[in-house]
Nucleic acid binder design. Structure first.
Length: 641
RNA sequence: GCCCCCAUAGCUCAGCUGGCCAGAGCAACUGACUUGUAAUCAGUAGGUCGUUGGUUCGAAUCCGACUGGGGGCUCCA
């Protein structure tokens, strides 16, 4: 007999070799039906795998992240099985579960495969699922594993097996399909009731641009048809929040082929929104002791040779701008920091002057690959709410903490609650991708972590995500479709001060090197606005709304009163428009509602006579009539941050 | 840059397996109506069907290339 400890702390005895499924059965049959896999001593196992020692067991169902992963991983195998039946000779790369479903990378040889072909595969998958084939786990030797896939002529699996240790290799079989797989899997394919293949994409084998591109098929499955329907409805809803769609509908921004790819044009309403955000940040920065600076959009090539940007990105970026003078070249600025370094150098600095904080809404240009461009979130020209803090080494942590506070204040003011903080570190295997000495990196990484801890931020460390000159603390927010975007970023940099030979005179009358902190709470105005649009679905907080009010006269007889009202409100910095069209009031209301104008002020005979306005709130309806003063009071209360 | 999908009027879209003048709604313009809480009525104008080669007696429709958009991959100072 062995002892099984369950999550509630209870301990039960079972025969040696009991499976998690059996354990579930001992609790209830219903539970057993829902068990997809189980965490045995912290490791996720098949629910059918025998347990031979004392163990803690946590049963995993659809409600557990790991349960879902198991389900989707198994679904990927069913996808592979279906593909093999329809396209004999297909070779398989990898087929893992992801946040929303799963994919399988396959090599279909010369076969063309497009989205039209998904339906047939989907149908085959459903057929295979209905067979309720069991997933069978077997241990295989490395030699046997290689032999199996050599016979199948699947070079991808062979490469994967080559990287594995003999004695740790397992195969899983369901129906007629056998795959190299660590597992675990669900008991049988019958649990998969609803299947949707979402899309086809190209993906490089092992993520390497230089290797063969495989066909990646994305799909998602559910244990109930209803859940699939709900998921698809959720996607439809998310599409309505897409910033590209809302940006067009609400007349915030546009793109023009003639202007160029990835170069956004801000329309008047979008510009107001953006300027309000900028003013918000300016105010916060003044309070936090920043000094505004302005620098040009281009800089001599030499500036970026010094900073290291040219060496790192020169060839893959916008090419230098030439002048009539030979050998004179300028670059569109990809970052503001080199310019700010030169501002720092404009006069001698004392230790008493530090920290110096230079802030600029600096527009930068980066040549992103065409396939990467995406609405406002990924563009070739954008404006950072940039600032560089030059401080003494002993001030780094304190300054870093202050920046964290600024970022958190910003997020809070704009209602972003679901962000994650990521400590972005070097890729330890590719140190040559970065500049700067090891000990400086280690020190910077330590300081970032300490500062984050001091503010109680829960962080995730991710290797290989650092900037080339230093580690970062990045704030990530998800868009409407669940894709993660980096907004705010804070970076400690010991390297640029070296390269630019920045110094200050210490109390000891010696020259010392300052430390730089790069930071941008919004990240870029473009990306931030995009994520904000999706976050609030176009219903901006009142203080940000491009049009805060719409004045809607009942008929042209009340235009004078409406005009007067418009002027009065403008003087109070309440922004909006007067709808003077020869339309019925219902029509004017509808149009203002569609444009998501927060307040509609309806004025007719009664209002004109009594000096009042009828107030209608977007999405809520008629609030009744009130005096103009009362409305202004109400508005100011609602628009406060 | 690479893989897959898409491209018809300012916007949203219809035009089936190639064959009468390429259509609708909204927006625009003109006129009438002078309006009380989510679309007043009538009329007018607007498209070399993304561009460019080809197949065909005939192409918006089939094929190729290019350009742009979308979903991914790679990349992201």
């Amino acid at each position: 007999m062995i002892k099984i400890t369950l999550p509630d702390g209870s301990v039960k005895e079972f025969e040696k070799g009991v499976s998690s499924h059996d354990i579930a059965m001992s609790i209830s049959e219903g539970l057993a039906r829902n068990v997809l896999s189980a965490k045995v001593n912290g490791e996720v196992w098949d629910s059918t795998r025998p347990i031979t020692t004392d163990a803690t067991v946590q049963l995993l169902t659809w409600n557990d992240l790991e349960g879902k992963s198991t389900f989707w991983h198994s679904s990927a195998h069913v996808l592979a099985e279906a593909l093999e039946e329809i396209y004999p000779g297909v070779k398989f790369g990898i087929g893992p579960p992801i946040d929303n479903g799963f994919y399988y990378d396959v090599d279909l040889g010369d076969q063309e495969f497009g989205e039209d072909d998904l339906a047939a595969v989907e149908k085959k998958m459903l057929e295979l699922a209905r067979n309720k084939n069991e997933f069978v786990r077997t241990d295989v030797s490395k030699a046997d594993a290689l032999k199996y896939f050599k016979e199948k002529d699947d070079e991808y699996k062979i490469e994967l097996i080559d990287g594995l240790e003999d004695g740790t290799i397992t195969f899983y079989q369901q129906g007629n399909f056998t795959d190299l797989c660590r597992g675990p899997h669900i008991p049988n394919t019958g649990i998969i009731k609803a299947i949707k293949l979402m899309s086809v994409a190209g993906a490089y084998w092992r993520g390497d641009e230089k290797r063969k591109q495989l066909t990646r098929i994305y799909g998602i499955t559910f244990p109930k048809q209803k859940e699939l329907t709900e998921y698809l409805e959720m996607l439809e809803e998310a599409k309505k929040r897409d910033h590209r769609k809302l940006g067009k509908e609400l007349e915030l921004f546009t793109f023009s082929e003639k202007v160029g790819l990835g170069l956004p044009l801000w329309l008047p309403k979008g510009t107001i929104l953006r300027e309000r955000l900028e003013n918000f940040m300016r105010k916060a920065q003044v309070k936090a002791g920043y000094d505004p600076v302005v620098t040009p959009h281009i800089g001599s090539k030499q500036l970026y040779v010094t900073s290291g940007h040219y060496e790192k990105y020169g060839a893959d970026s916008f090419q230098p701008i030439k002048t009539p003078n030979e050998d004179e070249e300028f670059l569109l600025k990809p970052m503001n920091c080199p310019h700010h370094c030169e501002i720092y150098k404009s006069k001698p600095r004392s230790y008493k002057d530090l920290p110096v904080r230079y802030a600029e809404f600096g527009t930068v240009y980066r040549y992103e690959q065409s396939g990467e461009l995406h609405g406002l979130t990924r563009v070739r020209g954008f404006t950072q709410d940039d600032a560089h803090i030059f401080c003494r080494p002993d001030q780094v942590k304190e300054e870093f903490v202050k920046v964290i506070d600024l970022v958190l204040y910003t997020f809070k003011a704009l209602g972003f609650e679901n962000y994650t903080a990521q400590v972005s570190l070097r890729d330890p295997d590719n140190k040559e991708k970065y500049i700067g000495a090891d000990e400086l990196w280690e020190r910077a990484e330590r300081e970032i972590q300490e500062a984050a801890d001091e503010r109680g931020l829960s962080t995730v460390a991710v290797q290989g995500e650092a900037a080339f000159y230093g580690p970062k603390l990045d704030f990530m927010v998800k868009d409407a479709l669940g894709r993660s975007w980096q907004l705010g970023t804070i970076q400690v940099d010991y390297t640029l001060p070296e390269r630019f030979e920045l110094e200050y005179t210490g109390a000891d009358n010696q020259k010392h090197r300052p430390v730089m902190i790069h930071r941008a709470p919004f990240g870029s105005m473009e990306r931030f606005v995009a994520v904000l649009i999706e976050h609030c679905g176009g219903n901006f907080p009142l203080w940000l709304s491009p049009d805060q009010i719409a004045i809607l006269p009942i008929s042209e007889k009340y235009q004078d009163y409406a005009q007067e009202l418009h002027t009065t409100l403008s003087e109070k910095d309440i922004r909006g428009f007067l709808d003077n069209r020869d339309e019925k009031i219902g029509r004017k209301i509808r149009d203002a509602e569609v444009m998501k104008v927060p307040f509609m002020l309806i004025v007719g005979e009664k209002e004109a006579a009594e000096g009042k306005v009828s107030v209608r709130r977007h999405g809520e309806g008629d609030l009744g009539s009130m005096s103009i003063e009362d409305f202004i009071g109400h508005f100011e209360q609602k628009s406060a941050l």
